[in-house]
Amino acid sequence: MTDTTVAARRQPRLPGWVRRLPAYILVWAWTAFTLAAILYVVMSALKTKREVLRSGWNLPQEWVWSNFATAWTVGRLGEYFINSLLVVGVSVFAILLVSTPAAYVLARARFRGRETLTNLFVIGMGIPIPMLFIPIFGILSYLRLSDSLTGLSLVFIAISIPVTIYLLTGFFASLPSELEAAAVLEGCNDFQVFWHVMLPLAMPGVLTALILNLIWLWNEYQLSLVILNSPQNRTLPLGLYSLQNAMQYTGDWPGMFAGVTIVIIPTIIAYALLSEKMIAGMTMGAVK
């Protein structure tokens, strides 16, 4: 009996948790760091302006809850939360509404110029967003939608179409064509094939696109900053941006961290609750 076979036999006898110990250590190292980071942000929100600069990861000496009240009222975060919810909700829904059928056709129909059209959509992913700053003002004021949440939604939809179509065409293209053929044999027309057969199969992919759009539109502020001017129209990232700027010029770091905490806590909770569904979607979505 050689050494290697002994080793091979012995190994499975080690209890599972011992074999997994290195994995636990590495994963916990990263996790501890990230949790500490989030904790740092939250704790900094509770300190005085002087203490926050030197106490690092120590607990606050006195808990200054009023930082939250200040950030909430001065930053009008309540109002902006609703604006964000509206804009992002409507936009994400509309993005999927227009992109899914388009991606389906681009992936599965046969027509001249299909490749070119697909490339035209894909090229949009590479366009730097600041390029839109100047022309968008003119277009939105022509449509009488400048400085409005509707205008912002339209732009959000337009800029999210490329990546959504890119994701979904890949997804539709990979679906087996047998089902499609069977449905046609049973007398479905092309719309029915899409609606009853292909779309349900594509749902995981649609969900993936939904999540990616949700994440990045929820945090978008560069374009919003250019399009929205009236304080009552601001979205959450804009409110936070303005709060952060003001805090920097007055040295109010706890106030800034308080604003950030107010924004991230509900996001984390929503994410914890939704992540199961979201990731289930991705599981099938991105991977087919």
Binding site: F133, I134, F137, G138, L140, S141, Y142, S146, L225, V226, N229
Partner: peptide, 11 residues
Amino acid sequence: TTVRNALASGT
């Protein structure tokens, strides 16, 4: 910068 962009569209 914001003013410039807005002026370009006649705001």
